[in-house]
Amino acid sequence: MNMAGGNNGTVIVLYENDKIVLYKRHKDNSPNQQTESMSFKAKSKGTFKYRYKLLNAKGSASSETIAIAVN
Rank of each mutant, 00 (worst) to 15 (best):
E64P: 01
S60I: 12
K24P: 02
K43V: 07
Q34I: 07
L54F: 10
K19V: 14
M1L: 05
Y52N: 06
A69N: 14
P31F: 09
S30D: 05
T65C: 04
G5I: 06
M1D: 04
G9I: 07
V11F: 00
E64C: 01
N2G: 03
Y23M: 15
K19S: 13
F48C: 04
L54Y: 02
N32L: 15
S63I: 14
L14S: 04
G59F: 05
L55H: 08
T35C: 09
L22M: 15
M3T: 06
K45V: 14
V70E: 09
A4R: 08
K19Q: 15
R51P: 00
N29P: 02
L54K: 07
M3S: 04
M1K: 03
L55D: 10
P31S: 11
N32W: 04
S37Q: 13
T65E: 10
V70C: 11
K27M: 14
L22I: 14
L14K: 10
N7Y: 01
V13A: 11
I66R: 06
L55Q: 13
M1V: 09
Q34A: 06
M3F: 01
A57H: 01
A57M: 03
A42S: 14
E16N: 08
K43E: 11
I68T: 15
D18N: 15
Y23R: 15
K49F: 00
A42P: 10
K49W: 00
N17C: 07
K53L: 02
D28C: 12
S30I: 12
Y15T: 09
A4P: 03
S37P: 03
N71D: 08
V21T: 15
Q33T: 14
T35W: 04
M38A: 11
I20C: 06
G6T: 08
F40E: 12
K58I: 09
G9Y: 06
N17Y: 02
I68H: 04
K24M: 11
A61G: 05
L55S: 10
G9H: 09
N17E: 09
A69F: 08
K43Q: 10
K49A: 11
Q33R: 13
N71C: 07
I12S: 01
E16P: 04
F40D: 10
M1I: 06
V13I: 15
A4V: 09
G59H: 05
K41A: 07
K43H: 02
Y23D: 15
Y23S: 15
N29D: 08
R51G: 00
S62D: 05
T65L: 02
